[in-house]
Amino acid sequence: MVLRDARESAGLTQLEVAEQMEWSLSKVIRIENGDVTIAPNDLRPLLSFLGVKDRTIVADMLATAKIARTRQTQRHVWYQTPEFREHLTDGTRRLIEYEAEASSIHSYSVFHIPGPLQIPSYSEALMNMWRDEMSEEQRRVRLDGRQRRHDGVLGRIGSLRMTALLDESVFMRAVGGPQIFADQLQEILRLEERKLVSIRMFPFSADAALSYNAGFDILFIGADNDLSNAVMYRESGVSDEIVEDHAITERHYRRYQKLWEAARSEVETVQFVNKRIRDLTGQKI
């Protein structure tokens, strides 16, 4: 797309454009991907910032933008359709946008397996814990969204790398019962074998303090570990949000790294998970 090429030619990141234009990073991503149209009044200053000065190119892009707005040809991705907009929070929809663009995702959880790694039966059992706090329609839509996120992650094997730092309690909490949880752990091992995710367990015996958050994800857009292109998603009680503040995101990522180093290694974690599966299913060595 012309805007993406112009930004890259100018040596700018999507986050730098977002800050200059006073937009969210997700808006820049959606515009570059063609998921949303851009108003001519927004396009003019954007082109100026990107250094696009050729009058013919500018006029053509403005005309295209006007036609797109007039005809309302905005293309909706699944999570922006009315059904999902009604039942998914704004934070969750923005998280899904970032998951589709991220080069790496680092997830930390003390309660459950991260959403993109969940199998349907585990997701359903987890959602059932909150059945009294949501309608059946909301539950159905959220389960559908969870499965789409899982499929989207699988479709990006080779271009996406994940790490998952999970408290030992996650592995001990058999959500859905022994067989469903064993199947979920098998899926984790399968994804680990396919080099999509690296998993470490933070044991009860670790001589290090837990993070002050129950769970969060750090997503890098572009170069891996370039914190200028990182955002954070976090859940707190019944709310969730995307955080684009550099200082907050960096503080959480540094904390994640310390916990990662204090956790069991990937090899030790896989061994623990295999033993946990045997315990759940009654298998013998």
Results as ranks from 00 to 15, higher is better:
9 S>W: 02
9 S>Y: 04
10 A>W: 09
10 A>I: 10
10 A>Y: 07
11 G>M: 07
12 L>S: 02
13 T>F: 05
14 Q>I: 10
15 L>P: 00
16 E>G: 02
16 E>P: 03
17 V>D: 05
18 A>S: 14
19 E>F: 04
21 M>Q: 12
24 S>M: 09
24 S>E: 13
25 L>A: 11
25 L>P: 04
25 L>C: 06
26 S>F: 04
27 K>D: 08
27 K>V: 03
27 K>W: 12
28 V>E: 06
29 I>V: 15
30 R>S: 04
30 R>L: 12
31 I>K: 04
31 I>Q: 03
34 G>N: 12
35 D>H: 09
36 V>R: 08
36 V>C: 02
37 T>V: 06
37 T>Q: 08
41 N>M: 13
42 D>M: 09
42 D>A: 12
45 P>V: 07
46 L>K: 02
46 L>W: 09
46 L>M: 15
46 L>P: 06
47 L>R: 06
48 S>K: 14
48 S>D: 15
51 G>N: 11
54 D>H: 04
55 R>G: 13
55 R>H: 08
56 T>D: 15
57 I>V: 15
57 I>E: 15
57 I>L: 15
58 V>K: 07
60 D>S: 14
60 D>V: 02
62 L>C: 05
63 A>R: 14
63 A>P: 02
64 T>K: 15
64 T>I: 05
64 T>Q: 15
64 T>W: 10
66 K>T: 15
69 R>E: 15
69 R>G: 13
69 R>F: 10
70 T>N: 11
71 R>M: 11
71 R>Q: 14
71 R>A: 11
72 Q>Y: 06
72 Q>T: 03
73 T>V: 11
73 T>L: 13
75 R>L: 13
75 R>E: 11
77 V>C: 04
78 W>F: 10
80 Q>N: 15
80 Q>I: 00
80 Q>R: 12
82 P>F: 07
86 E>W: 00
87 H>N: 06
88 L>T: 03
89 T>G: 14
90 D>L: 10
91 G>C: 04
91 G>N: 08
92 T>R: 09
92 T>F: 14
93 R>E: 11
94 R>N: 12
95 L>C: 02
97 E>Q: 10
98 Y>A: 01
99 E>T: 02
100 A>Q: 14
100 A>I: 06
101 E>R: 09
106 H>Y: 14
106 H>I: 03
108 Y>I: 03
108 Y>D: 04
110 V>W: 07
110 V>R: 14
111 F>P: 00
112 H>V: 07
112 H>M: 11
115 G>W: 09
115 G>Y: 05
117 L>Y: 14
119 I>D: 05
119 I>N: 08
120 P>E: 12
121 S>P: 01
124 E>G: 00
124 E>H: 07
125 A>V: 03
125 A>G: 10
127 M>D: 08
127 M>R: 04
129 M>T: 02
132 D>R: 05
136 E>D: 14
137 E>S: 06
137 E>F: 01
138 Q>C: 06
139 R>W: 10
139 R>C: 03
140 R>T: 10
141 V>S: 01
142 R>Q: 05
142 R>C: 00
143 L>K: 01
143 L>N: 08
145 G>W: 05
146 R>C: 06
146 R>W: 07
147 Q>I: 05
148 R>P: 04
149 R>Q: 12
150 H>N: 13
150 H>I: 01
